[in-house]
């Protein structure tokens, strides 16, 4: 167990370093930050001077080395746009993204799993066919269009829900939450639905596929032969066996939800990390871009690590296999 854990940890660090390197290499090509940092009347000499002070003229590996050393200490430098430490900005924006992602994940799971189970059990029923087809709409329209259509309908025409932002938030220490005010909850609804749609479709289809597989297996057939009630077979036996792979995927998808929030946050002006990232890309705010990518990688690596360990604990068969193949 210990050696497995250490091995995984080392691999994770390697993953993080690679991500950092790639992320960093990419940013050299996204544009020149200087022009967004000064006004139109700033002279060329001052611009060149600023570029030098920011170290943008240093050789690539000098810049990268500086970045890694600082990042390891949780320092991502000062944002060009906000002129504040990036770590501070991320701490400020993270609650918004995490609350939105959490609610979306809950929505996607709470709706996706029952629908998946239903469509698997009643494979040829008209309702499950309808579910299957309808759910596809969630992945047939681009997220941004769904978001804008929702705003148009519920924000502008019906005026039931706020069109942008988080509403009133309450500070609990460094965490800001929108769950405690009425306007905060109302503001969450549309972005959460927009973000959940895609994952919901994915989870539903996944559960259905896994469930269908399990229902065909011998032990379910034996169960039926022994005369166990359908309900018992479906929920006690089949669903339980479906859950292991489903949990893995859901775990991985949680990371994806946070990253996917980029588009939803942009459409709804949701003050989270994704919106900050998109703005940073536009303004070539390199410190924010780099920090965001490293954050996403970190979240993913942690989720991955947990999922792996859960597997290790849950399924003894994997221990041998894992140890033998080294991953």
């Amino acid at each position: 167990m210990i050696s497995f854990l250490i091995k995984r940890l080392l691999q994770s660090i390697l993953v993080m370093l690679t991500v950092a390197l790639i992320a960093f290499a990419l940013f050299r090509y996204v544009g020149d930050p200087i022009n967004n940092m000064v006004g139109q009347d700033t002279t060329l000499e001052e611009r060149a001077d600023l570029r030098e002070r920011l170290g943008l003229d240093d050789p690539f590996f000098v810049q990268f080395g500086r970045f890694v050393v600082n990042a390891a200490q949780g320092e991502f430098g000062i944002s060009y746009q906000h002129r504040r430490p990036v770590s501070e900005l991320i701490a400020e924006r993270a609650p918004a993204t995490l609350e939105l992602s959490l609610l979306s994940a809950i929505l996607a799971i709470a709706i996706g799993i029952p629908m998946g189970v239903y469509t698997a059990i009643h494979r040829d029923g008209w309702l499950s066919r309808a579910f299957m087809s309808l759910s596809l709409i969630g992945i047939s329209l681009p997220t941004f269009l769904i978001g804008i259509l929702l705003i148009l309908l519920f924000g502008v025409i019906l005026r039931w829900l706020p069109t942008f932002g988080r509403g009133e938030v309450v500070q609990l220490g460094w965490w800001s939450t929108g769950f405690l005010t009425w306007s905060g909850i109302k503001a969450l609804i549309m972005p959460a639905i927009t973000l959940a749609l895609f994952q919901m479709t994915l989870i539903m289809r996944l559960v259905r596929a896994e469930m269908l597989e399990v229902l065909r297996t011998d032990f379910v057939k034996f169960g039926r032969a022994r005369g166990l009630p359908d309900r018992y077979i479906h929920f006690k036996t089949a669903l339980k066996n479906t859950m292991v792979p489903v949990i893995t995927i859901i775990g991985l998808q949680l990371g994806a939800i946070i990253a996917f929030a980029i588009i939803t946050e942009t459409v709804f002006q949701w003050p989270g990390m994704g919106l900050m990232f998109i703005q940073a890309v536009r303004e070539v705010d390199i410190p924010i871009m780099a920090a965001y990518l490293v954050m996403i990688a970190l979240i993913f690596v942690i989720i991955n690590l947990i999922v792996d360990m859960l597997y290790y604990v849950v399924d003894p068969r994997l221990r041998v296999d894992r140890a033998a193949t080294g991953h």
């Binding site: 804008i148 705003i151 924000g155 502008v156 942008f164 709804f268 002006q269 998109i278």
Partner: peptide, 16 residues
Amino acid sequence: PIDQDATRVAALISGD
């Protein structure tokens, strides 16, 4: 600040 044109217009029309 509201980045997206559509969102900004929606915020105004809806009275936000």
